[in-house]
Computed example of a mutant assay.
Amino acid sequence: MWLNKQQIIPSALRAYRKALVRSTPHHVVIDGLFDPTKLDEVADVLQQEQQWKTQKHSYSALYVNNETWQETPDTERFVQRDLWQRPLQTPEDSKSTTALAFLQFLRGDEFMSLLSKIFDVRITDINVAEPEINTNFFRLSARDFVNQHADDSPGREVCMLLYLNKDWQQGDGGELIFMGEADKPIAIAPVYNRCVLFDPSSEGSEHWVKALASEADAVYRYNLTSWYWSE
């Protein structure tokens, strides 16, 4: 239902594995991995202003409150962005239900089995205390930022980014930048239905996000981020 079947045929999986091991950092970019009709419903939900809350991280602490944030030097701030808030009750509209179902799918057996095949390691939530908090939607405005950082942690095998920006054009900003190797950073544009999978422990996987070009209040860069562990 969620996956574009043409993107997960055996020949495609072989190509993903080859791209993964030959790149620095180990990563693969897959365009059109998900069914566009279903993804359109998800993208529409993200336009609802009331479901977003600002999230702030420093290099020394995650989920920093406003008081501590004001005392944190700019050089120690690495994330300021909005986090999508899951409805506390069962949503009445079908699109919000679809967005929640998509988050659940990304932590389900079918999708994690796909990741296991691509990365050649068993991906599982068996030892993850709160799996649901590791998969969610985010947005960035021109005032926000994701500065250079690493996503590696013990047992974390895969990081996934999925872009949900229907109208993105070159020059808008918001590119994912990997450090890469030999001072040759890799830039990946946040085009709609583009999925980036990478090994956060691989060389050159430190990354950041290029600032958005537009300062208009209603202009955002939308993405889904998901982290996965092995046993």
Rank of each mutant, 00 (worst) to 15 (best):
Q170V: 12
M160H: 10
E76V: 10
L114K: 06
G173E: 13
D74V: 11
S60V: 02
E132H: 00
L162G: 10
D144H: 15
A101W: 01
D151I: 12
T135G: 09
D152T: 12
F119Y: 10
G155E: 09
T98V: 10
V146Q: 15
I118G: 03
R143V: 08
R77A: 12
P154R: 07
F138E: 11
L83T: 11
W84S: 03
P73A: 11
V64M: 02
R107G: 13
E130D: 03
N134M: 05
L62T: 09
V146H: 15
K166F: 01
S141W: 13
F145W: 13
R81T: 13
T135F: 03
S113G: 11
S153I: 10
L162T: 10
S96M: 06
V128T: 11
W168I: 12
V158I: 14
Q104K: 11
N65P: 09
T72R: 05
F105A: 00
T72I: 07
S113W: 00
V64S: 01
L62D: 06
Q104Y: 00
G173D: 13
F119H: 04
S153L: 10
N165S: 12
V121C: 11
L88M: 00
N165Y: 10
A142E: 14
A129D: 04
F145E: 13
P91G: 04
Q169T: 12
Q148M: 15
Y163D: 11
I118P: 02
N127K: 04
L103S: 02
R122Y: 04
S153W: 08
R143S: 14
D125W: 00
E76A: 12
I133N: 04
I118Q: 06
I133Q: 09
E110C: 01
L88R: 00
M160T: 10
Q148N: 15
P131H: 01
D93H: 09
D93T: 07
Q169W: 06
F102S: 02
T98D: 05
T75D: 12
A99K: 08
T97K: 05
G108C: 03
F105E: 05
M112E: 09
F105V: 01
F138R: 12
F102Q: 10
T135L: 08
L88G: 07
A142Q: 15
A99W: 01
V64I: 04
A129F: 06
I126L: 04
N65A: 01
W84M: 05
I123G: 01
V121E: 11
F102K: 09
